[in-house]
């Protein structure tokens, strides 16, 4: 009564959009960069990378990142640490195990994904408690 207007909020929208973006990634649709991680090529969307990682934000936000189609990360993370982060970017789920956590932590630090770094530390602390 007397409201100026109505807003319908679709609360599933963020996860539905992300799910579709992940499907586009898996099918190579509109992926615009190939990341060479430990020699393994991984296709992704720059827009998703820049939205999720401070490292990629600093690389792709400037003009220097415009023509980049293949990006190798020398001295960067190993694939077993990077791949779970790329899946996290597209699914919001980060798969961790005591065996992979240190590699994921190293990759998240390199990619400047501070919130994930904190989550990895929490996981490592709890999984190593006696």
């Amino acid at each position: 009564e007397g409201a100026l207007g109505y807003v319908r909020e679709f609360t599933r929208h963020p996860s539905d959009v992300l799910g579709n973006l992940n499907e586009l990634r898996l099918r190579g649709i509109l992926t615009d960069v190939t990341l060479l991680v430990g020699g393994q090529p991984l296709r992704a969307h720059k827009a998703v990378l820049i939205a999720c990682s401070g490292f990629f934000y600093s690389i792709f936000r400037g003009r220097a990142g415009i023509g980049v189609e293949v990006l190798s990360l020398p001295g960067g993370p190993e694939a077993r640490g990077f791949a779970p982060l790329l899946d996290f970017m597209y699914t919001s789920r980060l798969r961790l195990s005591p065996a992979t956590a240190p590699a994921v932590l190293a990759a998240a630090t390199y990619l400047q994904m501070e919130h994930v770094v904190q989550a990895c530390h929490r996981f490592i602390q709890t999984s190593y408690e006696p």
């Binding site: 919001s92 789920r93 994904m113 919130h115």
Partner: peptide
């Protein structure tokens, strides 16, 4: 099988915030 995967919900911010245009 992959065995049991325990899921822990993280309610806090997940990624960096891109600064708003000054």
């Amino acid at each position: 099988s992959e065995g049991l995967v325990a899921t822990v919900k993280e309610a806090g911010r997940s990624i960096h915030e891109i600064p708003r245009e000054e």
